[in-house]
Amino acid sequence: MGTREEMLAMLRMMMMIRNFEETADKLTLRGKVSGGMHNSSGQEAVAVGVMSALAPDDVIATTHRSHHHTLAKGFSAREVMAELMTKATGVSKGRGASMHLGDVARGHFGGNGIVGAGMGIGMGAALGIKLAGDKKVAVGFVGDGGMNTGRTWEAVNMAAIWKLPLIVVVDNNQYAVETFIERVTAGGDLPKRASGFGLPASTIDGQNVLEVKDAVAKARDFALAGNGPTFLNAVTYRYYGHNVGEKGQYRTLEEIEDWRTNRDPIDQLAARLFADGLLDQATFDEMTASVEAEIKDAVEFAENSPNPDPADVMLNVDSGKLRG
């Protein structure tokens, strides 16, 4: 389960992500976020559970909805917020915005504008790790919608035949835009699909950060022991629309309210820590205040940062080495 410090750190990270997303959502509505964004509120436990089980130099590759993964991976609220506003101080130096957060040098192989593409890159990173003989793993995130792209299963198959140190994490918020997963998923059961490729596959409670962390820790050990990939279907829920501003009719307000009030990942962990005597009100209030200050500072930092210099538009298109 972890020490008190670890648990409080997980709680604080989830609170930070929530505050970040709700703040960024408002900024997006005010036109401050270029190209809009995908809000991950409700899905914090998947990101924080996964990253809590990883070593800092493990690799991730992810999706269009990846603020939570990026923050949990250890990127600062400042640099993620700055990236949303395409500032030169952002994660991707202002070239990516919300969907394209990434920094290869820090083991973040990128968000992705293309559904299903990130997980395959994670699989490739796992191949790199294996060939280099390193003791690391790669995590490939994919959404429930991404479960129906053909390449997802090409990548799972390849990871399985080569026993790559890959953990496939389905950040399964049950909807792909307006499409409820059950409408489009033949067979119904994702781990059943995955286990056809001969790898351990299970569904986990994506609202329970400790369960996610445990499952990923096991998958990591399994991979480091040379046994290959694991498939984890983390069932979660997004509280907001697919993209900021969306007001869909494809799900009921009752459904949203039920997940928010009865299964919220932050409430659940906080309640448990209170019950176990690991958290008191003063500490919780102090955490809330410090998160608020952190995000406020991040927004100020982002707003005061410069945009990339348009003179650099041709910089890093390629290495230049082949152009003499």
Binding site: V59, A61, V104, F109, A117, G120, I121, G122, M123, G124, A125, A126, L127, G128, I129, L131, A132, A138, G150, R151, E154, A155, N157, M158
Partner: peptide, 15 residues
């Protein structure tokens, strides 16, 4: 797709 993805990820990793 997986062949190229494997190449992309491995190349990013330093291979």
């Amino acid at each position: 797709a997986a062949m190229i993805a494997a190449g992309v990820g491995a190349a990013m990793y330093g291979m």
